[in-house]
């Protein structure tokens, strides 16, 4: 009894001795900046203006209460742009997530079934794009999508078809209701990103005990039953992780659009983060940008919570 209490005390002490510095650190480098960002959303703040009072909040940078949030529902160009960028971001994210899973999960299963050598090789190659710089990827794909001298158009021409006039700049180029420029960004994003989920899935598949599968096979399960009844349930924690991370990263898509399209044509690819960035640093409306980023934060938070709920409660056993 006494020994047990002693043990628990040691463990607690150890946990706190590690977590205290980490939390202090997070306070300084995460929490305070986050609170700061939220506070800015209630001010008409611009770093260009000195302002007055604490941290320059006051004077020329006045407190405006909820004005920034109310303005989001207004009829101004800024409000339109905000809503457009939200729509674009959702469109992007909800296309990327299923497409990503549709590519990575089957591919992971195929790779997992391959010879050990082939497995290592394919996994290595598929992961390669994820280690590359987003700016470089944007530049390379920008060259690929270049309308005249670009790779994609010339491949399409070489098989006798006519490519669209321009991949990234034509506002009238729309496929199934989705702007071609958006599709082009999604393809580039998937190309860079899919290896990451793939590797996680492969690792998770390798973690599934062989005897489980063998047992299922002895019971006469076929391939698809095995996938739905054995593999998928066991991948639940991984699935949660992958969905959350994929959604989080696609909701925060920025550099590809910034470099490849600058949000164009006609704001068809302006993402919420681009809007935030431009307002904060180009249009000198940092208060407005802060309010927008708080909305983005709420969205991300909501989706993450929903995913946690759905994937956790449904499959609890």
């Amino acid at each position: 009894m006494g020994q047990r209490g002693q043990l628990q005390r040691t463990q607690q002490r150890f946990a706190y001795s590690i977590m205290t510095p980490i939390m202090l650190y997070l306070m300084l480098f995460s929490l305070i900046p986050m609170i700061w960002a939220v506070v800015l959303g209630f001010f008409d703040y611009s770093p260009v203006r000195l302002g007055s009072g604490l941290f320059g909040l006051g004077g020329d940078n006045p407190f405006v209460a909820l004005d920034n949030y109310i303005a989001m529902f207004g009829d101004t160009q800024a409000a339109h742009l905000f809503r457009t960028s939200l729509r674009n971001t959702f469109l992007f994210s909800f296309l990327v997530l299923p497409l990503n899973l549709a590519i990575t999960l089957p591919l992971a299963i195929i790779i997992e079934r391959s010879h050990a050598r082939a497995k290592g090789f394919f996994r290595a190659v598929y992961f390669l794009p994820t280690v590359t710089s987003a700016v470089a990827v944007a530049l390379i794909w920008g060259a690929i999508y270049s309308p005249q001298a670009g790779l994609l158009s010339s491949i399409i021409r070489s098989v006798g078809m006519t490519p669209p006039k321009a991949w990234l700049t034509d506002p009238q180029a729309i496929f199934m209701g989705i702007p071609i420029a958006m599709i082009a960004l999604i393809v580039a994003h998937l190309w860079q990103d899919f290896g990451y989920n793939l590797v996680i899935f492969i690792a998770a598949l390798q973690g599934i005990p062989a005897n489980l599968r063998e047992a299922a096979m002895v019971d006469g399960a076929n391939e698809s039953q095995m996938f739905w009844l054995v593999t998928l349930p066991l991948l639940r924690p991984t699935m949660l992780f992958v969905c959350v991370m994929t959604l989080l990263s696609s909701l925060q898509m920025f550099i590809l659009a910034q470099v490849m399209t600058a949000g164009g044509p006609r704001e068809q690819t302006t993402t919420i983060l681009m809007s935030i960035y431009q307002n904060a640093f180009r249009f000198q409306n940092m208060g407005w940008a802060a309010a927008m980023s708080f909305v983005l934060f709420l969205i991300i938070f909501t989706f993450t919570m929903i995913q946690f709920r759905v994937l956790k409660t449904d499959w609890e056993y």
Binding site: G142, S146, T169, A262, G264
Partner: peptide
Amino acid sequence: ATLFSGDN
């Protein structure tokens, strides 16, 4: 203006 914009 579609083709001659951005990098071009």
